[in-house]
């Protein structure tokens, strides 16, 4: 039992070390992949554009729910005009980056892991290596950067969509004053403090999710079973990483 736990811990540390080395190599070979932009563009398409629908629809629904629930609570205290503030702050600071990150991990992250894992299983990575093409530069780096670039854009779209959803419920359906909705929001939301910090968060999540996805694919056991396990691990570790990082970042950013 104890030996089992010990082995797991050692395995975890070993993987962490390998992941760090992997990140180093990834960054080192990134220059090559930026020279050929079309590779990265392709990955932005696969991880960004193809996640667009789920991000927009979820953002809208989250905004609608926030609008409804927020109004319920606020109107008890007679301050339903603050609905805009509530919706905008919760989305830009927390829900936008976090929920978009979780969706991104399960939509794009898992796809990246599956793709790289499959390439490993069918020896495509080894073949590439034998053709004197570095698989980290050719396969991993573009996917990593595709994710890193897509993620903040997706989170911004999610937040924007959510605020529109909140406006739809609050102003168009319930009848909160339109002017108060926007002006209170504008008075309370600070660009540097709320919006830039939200973008920083989503960027950090993008780095974390992309690294996990690429690494798990690269590190997976080259069997069908190994690939499916790697996909599960990608989604689980991405979710944990996002939530843990969110806590750390929040405590740094929004103190006082």
């Amino acid at each position: 039992m104890i030996r089992n736990i010990g082995a797991r811990v050692i395995d975890g540390v070993w993987r962490l070390g390998f992941a760090s080395r992997f990140l180093f190599l990834l960054l080192r070979y990134s220059g090559q992949s930026f020279l050929r932009l079309h590779l990265t563009l392709r990955e932005i398409y696969f991880s960004g554009v193809l996640s667009l629908l789920i991000i927009l629809v979820s953002g809208l629904f989250v905004g609608l729910v926030l609008g409804l629930q927020g109004y319920e609570t606020l109107q008890r205290y007679g301050s339903s005009e603050a609905l805009g503030v509530l919706v905008a702050l919760s989305l830009t600071r927390e829900l936008g980056p976090v929920v978009a990150g979780l969706l991104f991990a399960s939509r794009a992250g898992s796809a990246v892991t599956a793709e790289i894992g499959l390439m490993k299983t069918t020896e495509q990575l080894k073949a590439m290596d034998m053709m004197a093409v570095n698989p980290i530069a050719r396969v991993a780096a573009p996917r990593f950067w595709g994710g890193v670039i897509s993620m903040p854009l997706l989170a911004a779209l999610f937040s924007a969509m959510g605020i529109l959803g909140g406006w739809l419920i609050g102003v168009a359906f319930i009848g909160v004053d339109d002017g108060a909705f926007w002006s209170q929001m504008q008075a309370a939301v600070d660009i540097r403090y709320d919006i830039v910090n939200g973008v920083i968060k989503s960027f950090v999540f993008g780095v974390a999710v992309s690294l996990i996805a690429v690494f798990e694919g690269y590190d997976c056991e080259p069997t069908a079973e190994g690939v499916s396990r790697a996909i599960t691990r990608t989604v689980v570790s991405s979710a944990l990483a996002i939530l843990a990082l969110d806590f750390v970042l929040t405590s740094f950013m929004f103190r006082g």
Binding site: T92, A156, I163, W182, M185, Q186, V189, I191, D194, I195
Partner: peptide, 8 residues
């Protein structure tokens, strides 16, 4: 949108 309309 976030910068101009929401954050003013």
């Amino acid at each position: 949108f976030l910068a101009l309309k929401v954050g003013n």
